[in-house]
Design a protein around this nucleic acid. Sequence first.
DNA 1: GGTCTCATGTAAATAGTTACATGATTAT
DNA 2: ATAATCATGTAACTATTTACATGAGACC
Lengths: 188, 188
Amino acid sequence: MDTHKTTTEETLLGLLSLGPMSGYQMRNLMQDSTANFWRESYGRIYPALKRMKKAGLVELDKQASAGPRAKKVYRLTTTGQKRLRAWLGVPAQPLPNRNELLLKLFFGDRATPGTMAAQVLAWQQSYAADLKRYELQLAELEATHAKHPGLPFWRMTLRYGISEAIMVINWCADTMEELKSPPTRDKG
Amino acid sequence: MDTHKTTTEETLLGLLSLGPMSGYQMRNLMQDSTANFWRESYGRIYPALKRMKKAGLVELDKQASAGPRAKKVYRLTTTGQKRLRAWLGVPAQPLPNRNELLLKLFFGDRATPGTMAAQVLAWQQSYAADLKRYELQLAELEATHAKHPGLPFWRMTLRYGISEAIMVINWCADTMEELKSPPTRDKG
DNA sequence: GGTCTCATGTAAATAGTTACATGATTAT
DNA sequence: ATAATCATGTAACTATTTACATGAGACC
């Protein structure tokens, strides 16, 4: 079957609202922008574009060549624009996430001493690296898209990542502190 | 094929380390404890237990009855305990998460005025409810498992949820504030 | 003409949930 | 006895990634 209920199509509509582009370019753009909170693979992008064209949400821009593997630049139709706007108004649903560190920590009292402290430290370092990356990304964004109407919104999503990273780093610090203090049991 | 690379088996080992129980009970226990950061469905639990028994990681406790649908209480073997301990030491990997609010916000400048503010407000309210729930859970945990050696670890996972909720609530407040101020463009 | 990157597309593998079929146990 | 709940198990469905096959265009 080819009927998906996912947001892939709407995501692609959103990307096309920034200007006509090909499926390949959409994937690259996502890797440079939404990768931290949304990703789509070729295996979903190309079939989605096919469906969307059939449904009249997108259309082909003039093509340069015509071979079986020629680059296809898509563009939003009016229907597509309407659909995007409608979707933006549908309340976003929090998705159930998984966290492997918390899972291991939940069983922490079964681990040998020091194991969990090492886990939390590594986790903290990983988020510290993320934080650095987000801050670079933010500076670059301000510099290269200073005039773009999307900038305030892109900034908000980056600030989310920054807030999250800071939260995790602080939680790791607190947690490591507590892991140092002797647990509430007689024998270690 | 029946060879999974997921952490389902290790999760079940962890649960069994708290005491012998059935697959059904494992599911219930997860819903009351790890649901916020880890979940497993029957469709994964039962096949996993079968494999684990075959691999000698778990064994059956004495069964009350013997019908084809009799309750099966599993118990960790020494091999299973070792495997659990080993897994707890393997560095936890951050999993790529999705966030539908951030995705919509990324395309926020295509939305009609007020749309994004409404989205962010609803998100904030959803996390405020989570926060309340976590705080209740924490109080209940302290009361009912005061002496359990796992308590400090369970508390850490709950405090993560609390920190995250507070972070999101604050980010929503900041974001709504910024959405109010006129964006950097000449025409609204 | 070679090689690198851009580019499309699909098949197969992997991951995970949900719905259903069935039966056992417990409380009323 | 009957209903609710506890319980096992699997098939079908949904979701998603990865690997592969293919080819076009640009640059050297």
